[in-house]
Computed example of a mutant assay.
Amino acid sequence: MGGEPDREPGLGVGAVARRLGLAAATLRTWDRRYGMGPSGRSPGGHRRYTPEDVARLEAMQRLILEGAPPGEAALAARNEPPGAPRRPRGHGAGGNRVPVGEPPAGADAAEVRGLARAAMSLDVPAMVEAIRSAIARGGVVRAWDGLMVPVLAGIGRKHAVGGECVEVEHLLSTVVLGCLAEVPTPEQPLNVRPVVLACAPEEQHSLPLYALAAALAQAGVAASLLGARVPPDALAAAIRRTGPGAVFVWSQTAATGDPGWLAGLPGTRPMVRLLAGGPGWRQDRLPDSVRFVTSLSQAVTEILNGPAAP
């Protein structure tokens, strides 16, 4: 208040946090516990991070990603000479960097890199902050396509090549799930008939269903999410009980993508709209009654324009 902090020398905690892909709370903890705080002062007396401070923080973060405990990483970073060459990160394909590739059109590349760094650091507050901000700014569909999917896919590629990052993938998936669950369900849904979301039998990758449920909620549509590994008879029972306007079934892997059982699902009057999505499906064998969708936005549009809508 009354000043222009952006013109003061050095960087504030928020700017450094964004640069490193960490939560500001993490930097304050590193300052309090390990003495890795700002050493500079602005003319107004505010603590500011100097370039040397930021270099030490980057070194500490790099060492933590390589497996060092935070205390040891802080000590080594303080003793590392300025301008010292960086040691190779980790091993395998790309060390501890996430191969996120080129973000989709319209995505914020810096935002994607920040979430990837936070995920590799297992920094839950920073991950939550990045995902919540993206959802609040652009909605679930844009945040899913432009931020969450690129990072999740990059971590998946890293695991496929070197068998690494299982803990990173699990933690990030948990954080994504929690953020999606925060999207409020509509108090007065647009849809008169229910919408049912389910995974194919034995399919355990249910995260895309939670993204669809959250995106539908933002669009004013309430959905019933049955989750992973839904047997055909259980889905059939849900259809008979609820008389849904739309049923969406997800298959992530080829092992769960045989669609022969879809033709045996019961119809209702008026007829249920059956949608399938995911890379696991054998599209050439989908029944004619099944509409295949290729994106989250298309799934939302199909459900909004189908008989589930008023």
Rank of each mutant, 00 (worst) to 15 (best):
D6C: 03
R7W: 11
V13I: 15
A15L: 00
L20H: 01
L22D: 00
A24R: 03
R28K: 11
T29E: 08
G40E: 03
T50K: 02
T50N: 07
P51D: 06
E52D: 15
D53V: 05
E58Y: 01
A59M: 06
M60C: 11
R62P: 02
L65W: 01
G67S: 11
A68G: 02
A68Q: 15
P82A: 15
R89N: 11
G92S: 10
G92I: 05
A93N: 11
A93W: 14
N96M: 13
R97Q: 11
A107Y: 10
D108W: 08
D108A: 14
R113Y: 14
L115N: 05
M120T: 06
S121G: 07
L122A: 08
V124H: 03
P125S: 03
E129K: 00
V140F: 04
L147N: 04
V149N: 01
V151C: 00
L152C: 02
I155V: 15
I155N: 06
R157C: 00
A160I: 01
V161W: 12
E164Q: 12
C165A: 15
E167V: 13
L171E: 13
L171F: 13
P189A: 07
A198R: 09
H205K: 02
S206R: 10
P208S: 01
L209A: 07
L212T: 08
A214H: 10
L216V: 05
A223M: 10
D233F: 10
D233N: 12
L235M: 08
I239D: 02
G243Q: 12
G245F: 04
V247I: 05
F248N: 02
T253S: 15
W261A: 06
V272E: 05
G277N: 08
G278L: 11
P279F: 12
D284M: 05
P287S: 05
V290P: 10
R291W: 06
F292E: 06
V293P: 07
V293Q: 07
L296D: 01
L296F: 01
S297D: 12
Q298I: 01
V300Y: 08
N305T: 15
A308W: 08
A309D: 12
P310D: 10
